[in-house]
């Protein structure tokens, strides 16, 4: 898509804002609408826009499939690990109140960690899906 000058320039302008908005949604999910699921999808959509404009090869140099696999697994591991950490500190599985000195601070930290895990997994899987579909060659060609 090297001839679509307008598309390329507009996309270059928009992608940083989409990424910033995704981070806002991720970390502001406690106070307004949003959270890990939405942030992961928005982050992935920025990368999908990049892939659509600049091609799969370029996008794979930005985020490689290996990195995606590691991210997808590490998101679930962050989530499960938070639960195990709560057990190690003497609570039940996913009982965040044990994570910090006061229960409220512990809940805050726990929610932050698991939203991070959810966001990472959703982002990685959504981009993985898109890579999977766009990496396929058209069988008729």
């Amino acid at each position: 898509m090297h001839d679509h000058l307008i598309l390329r320039i507009i996309a270059k302008m928009f992608i940083p804002f989409i990424l910033l908005f995704a981070l806002y949604v991720q970390f502001h999910g406690d106070y307004g609408p949003g959270g890990g699921f939405q942030a992961g999808v928005i982050f992935a959509s920025a990368l999908i826009l990049y892939t659509l404009i600049f091609g799969l090869e370029t996008a794979m140099r930005v985020v490689s499939p290996t990195a995606l696999r590691i991210l997808a697994a590490s998101g679930v591991l962050i989530y499960g690990g938070t639960g195990v950490l709560c057990m190690l500190r003497g609570g039940n599985f996913l009982e965040y109140s044990m994570l910090a000195a006061t229960p409220l601070a512990g809940q805050h930290l726990g929610i932050f960690l698991i939203e991070l895990g959810v966001g990472t997994t959703v982002f990685a899987v959504m981009v993985m899906l898109f890579y999977g579909f766009s990496g396929r060659k058209d069988p008729s060609s």
């Binding site: 999910g29 406690d30 996913l94």
Partner: peptide, 29 residues
């Protein structure tokens, strides 16, 4: 704590559910 009740129910009261959903998404990937 969080003012957004959906976040607190999703992440804290129903954390097990969300862990399951994350695992489903990972499996789909």
């Amino acid at each position: 704590g969080p003012p957004n009740m959906v976040t607190s129910v999703l992440a804290s009261y129903r954390g097990f559910d969300t862990l399951g959903e994350t695992a489903v998404i990972f499996t789909a990937g």
